[in-house]
Design a protein around this nucleic acid. Sequence first.
RNA 1: UGGGGUAUAGCCAAGUCGGUAAGGCACAGGACUUUGACUCCUGCAUUCCCUGGUUCGAGUCCAGGUACCCCAGCCA
Length: 565
Amino acid sequence: MTEKERVVDSSNFIRNIIEEDISSNKNDGKVVTRFPPEPNGYLHIGHAKSICLNFGLAQRYNGKCHLRFDDTNPETEKVEYIEAIKEDVKWLGFDWGDNLFYASDYFDKLYELAIDLIKQGKAYVCSLEADQIRETRGTLTEPGIESPYRYRSVEENLELFERMRQGEFPEGSHVLRAKIDMASPNMNMRDPVIYRIKKVSHHRTGDKWCIYPMYDYTHCISDALEGITHSICTLEFEDHRPLYDWVLEQVDLGCHPQQIEFARLNLSYTVMSKRKLLRLVEGGYVSGWDDPRMPTIAGIRRRGYTPEAIRDFCERIGVAKNNSIVDIALLEHCVREDLNQKAPRVMGVLEPLKVVIENYPEGQVEMVEALNNPNDPDSGTRMVPFSREIYIERDDFMEDPPKKFHRMSPGKEVRLRYAYIVECTKVVKDEQTGEILEVHCTYDPETRGGAAPDGRKVRGTIHWVSAADCIDAEVRLYNNLFTKENPDEVEDEEGTFLDNINPESLVVLKGCKLEKSLLEAEIGKAYQFERQGYFCKDKDSTEERTVFNRIVPLKDSWAKIASNK
RNA sequence: UGGGGUAUAGCCAAGUCGGUAAGGCACAGGACUUUGACUCCUGCAUUCCCUGGUUCGAGUCCAGGUACCCCAGCCA
């Protein structure tokens, strides 16, 4: 383990539990976890926390982590999601090996065990309608009322359940319920439904079944069948733990995993629930599940975030039972830290301003040598064309600059990175509007490469691109999707999180001028545009059109100073 | 007014047997700088939700409060 890794290697309560279990030789010292998504949507960074936790624990303790699709509700699930989820888990850098499972693999066994429960008198077919079941469940403060069907004979239950399976009854006419305690203060224990009739075909089992088991019944048994030792889930399942344990005690599979709950991830300035994410997509507020502003794994990947950064982030946020909202700045920090190490540097001008170097020979082009990554001595150099007409960033020129402005302004010297030291001699403006059209400079031929042989100090260094030798691009700048740390905080009662969408979450820049070497950039590969941020080519790029995404901007202490004025 | 949880800095979060508050992010200074980036220094909780109690000693133990989150799907 390197020094850096040790820094973020902090313990958490789950690791403590597992370490105690290992030292007491519980489960023969083995650790088997699982990541159990329902294939009814795309994964987001909250799932990444769970994936990193479960797979990470397995790695750390030489165990295994299964990928298991919790596919018990065919109405909402699709194979398309299964494929997307697998891809996301792989992209994050985890490997389930042979341990790919589906709850639907266990439908036969689950059915068999349900019959067992009936025979034990622990489950019964209830013929109440859905709202009758709801009405008799009681409230948070009042106990429920027992179903009139609660004491049906074992024979009758067996027969009815079999007929449910055969498809003899319409949806909603009967369910199988566990017989526990209608007066339990825990609502989950008030004779929960464990099987319901759904006459829909399943994406894996086809039309074999028309009854499907419920989560509470399925999940614990699936865990036990797979020999899971630690079944880690989020806080809202804490109330379900007694039911998890109850089911396993009744069926006795010789394995009783321990359910442990932790707090799900919330991030500032974004939303994480499947429902809200779906609304953003369906309402056209974003371009799709992989819109680079989305906190989905697909969005994050397209944006250019790296799996390494995500894993580091998940390590740093820790694991606890506290409801919390993590500052998105931490995620961005992790992305910058990772990209700073590996992203090749390049020059790109986002909002171009033409500069003419008056004393530079017309038509001359010379190649200047630039470092690919000053922070990585092994990254080598590249040659960048320089000529009489170049573009610089509009922000890097001010006709009448404030005190600490170290960039280009009339009469002041500034360095063009890797090229020459220049001095602004003239500003050309539109006579009508006063807009600055171009700037003229002279260069000092003695300063090739940017060094001053006489040792004179030049504070500012700016990036540039040769006008005749650059590519035109569209650059998409992304900002927080919402204007509020907590998007659910709305002004008036009628409002929703959608009212807090940041109108500047996407800013499209056209006519950006990029260093020619970017022509061959592969989609998704991160580059640092020096002094700007990290960018990657977007999949929307074509032969005719180059599109880059801004992954994350560089920190900008000048912007802070300037905005304080 | 039932049950289950959680409270340590602006945001995360560690804190085993009670021994005198880790770390990261953010923020603020400074150094360095051919990226106002990076890196490097420095600062940032006399106090752990509150009130009592036990103790030589309490974030840790005890008692009583308070605040917030979750639960009444034939969703997971």
